[in-house]
């Protein structure tokens, strides 16, 4: 039975605390800073989980661009800051969350242990195919890049379409027709 490494556990616990702070801090600027710290913690967790590509994207997009977008939004609108430091607990939401947590916790036990070598994803034929054939077939050493740009290239084209559509939508919503 494998166990989660202490470093990973500490990083994940930090992330959960930062996420809690982001939701419960009343001042929106404080919440955005806590959210950036959360994204940073998660980016470190991706490195510990052997996913450097995801870590780079999370650090650049999650901690970087998303934080800037939030800051621009409160600069353009309003930053409501109350007299209290924390939000009051909303008990109706707690009830919904408890229902969700209860449902999900019943499934956790049936998942394979973190990092076990006989987990379904690690032993799946798709994983084995990509790891064995990605380099000979595409000449790309990074299997993630090979899958992203070669095997699932149409997926990535769809992703690019989503980004373009989002950019056009933002300009339209903000009535910046000069750029459209």
């Amino acid at each position: 039975m494998t166990t989660v490494s202490t470093t990973l556990a500490i990083v994940l616990t930090f992330s959960v605390l930062a996420a809690l702070a982001a939701i419960f801090l009343r001042d929106v600027l404080n919440a955005i800073i806590a959210f950036a710290a959360f994204s940073f913690g998660i980016a470190v967790a991706w490195i510990l989980l052997a996913a450097p590509d995801v870590a780079l994207t999370e650090a650049a997009v999650g901690a970087g661009i998303t934080t800037v977008l939030f800051l621009v939004t409160i600069a353009k609108t309003v930053r409501p800051s109350g007299e209290r430091l924390l939000e009051a607990v909303e008990w109706r939401s707690v009830a919904i969350v408890v229902l969700l947590v209860g449902t999900l916790l019943t499934t956790v036990r049936s998942l394979p242990a973190v990092g076990s070598a006989d987990a379904p994803v690690a032993t799946s034929r798709v994983t084995e195919y990509y790891l064995q054939n990605a380099y000979p077939e595409t000449g790309v050493e990074n299997a993630v890049t090979a899958v992203l740009a070669a095997y699932r290239g149409f997926d990535t084209l769809g992703e690019a379409t989503v980004v373009i559509a989002a950019g056009v939508a933002v300009l339209l919503v903000l009535r910046q027709e000069a750029y459209v």
Binding site: P52, T127, L131
Partner: peptide, 26 residues
Amino acid sequence: SGYVDGAAPPLVGHGSGPYASPLPHV
């Protein structure tokens, strides 16, 4: 779900496994 204990990042050009599954990362 794609992580294996002691796995290297899926850079398959050189070196040997075990590697983390690249599909969840993508």
